[in-house]
Amino acid sequence: MTDFLQTPLFGIVLTIGAFALAQWLYQRTRMVFLNPVLVAIVAVILLLSAADIPYSSYAHGGDIILFLLGPSVVALAVPLYQRRQDIARRKNVILIGIFFGALASIVSACGIGWLLGGSPDVVLALSPKSVTTPIAISIIENLGGVVPLTAATVVLTGCLGGVCGPEFCRLIGVRSPVAVGLAVGTAAHGIGTARMMEIDRLSGAVAGLAIGLNGLFTTFLLPLLMLFFRG
């Protein structure tokens, strides 16, 4: 048994099994908060904690699945290329929407964190919360912040936006596939994009574009804003 826990097979079986069950549950119930990603994450964490299995055992297999995110991000070029005319026609909408989303994310996350008495480490770790994990980590490393804290805020944000992003957009009257894709992709990076991909390919494509552009804007905005507030 201990041998099995140390093989990649353990983490892979657990992840795919939990996700398959979570997807089945979601299809049966169609309840928004039973988002398969969220349910699978919670189920795996609960199981590991209950069985007292360390995260490092899970990671042997989990990291292999996580690795596939890399080529998937590269693959986002395909829907972007296929929808290039739709995107080129709306380039101003896309650039302006993502830029102000990136700005709103930094200001609101840091502002609320600071108002509620967060320590400087927490406030800084909140700043790239809407940026995709790998870019957020590079940004925070460069600024001398706490990486694990950043990773946690990024993943929480992604789950939240992925779970209720499209529904929230409908609620506030945002309906066009481009606007919804931009909103969810800018706010909730890859997890939001995964959700949009399931709903509509154009939304998914612009959400994918938002991952890259939000990362780019935040990388440049954050050091500038820090100068402004500290100076």
């Binding site: 983490g11 992840t15 939990a18 996700f19 398969p36 990603v37 969220l38 699978a40 994450i41 795996v44 964490i45 590991l48 904690s49 995260y55 899970y58 990671a59 989990g62 990291d63 699945i65 996580l66 596939l68 995110l69 998937s72 609101s108 996350a109 840091c110 502002g111 609320i112 964190g113 600071w114 509620l116 008495g117 967060g118 320590s119 927490v122 406030v123 770790a125 909140l126 919360k129 994990t133 706490v146 694990p148 804290l149 990773a151 946690a152 805020t153 993943v155 929480l156 944000t157 992604g158 789950c159 939240l160 992925g162 890859g190 997890i191 994009t193 995964a194 959700r195 991909m197 399931e198």
Partner: peptide
């Protein structure tokens, strides 16, 4: 795509101590 994010989310369990210290500003701001 959604499946590949599951391990990233599970990774948060390593940081529960860090999160527990300042859960309110982190959760509310996020």
């Amino acid at each position: 795509l959604a499946l590949f994010f599951v391990p990233a989310g599970v990774g948060v369990m390593v940081y529960t101590d860090v999160l527990a210290n300042e859960w309110l500003p982190i959760l509310a701001a996020t």
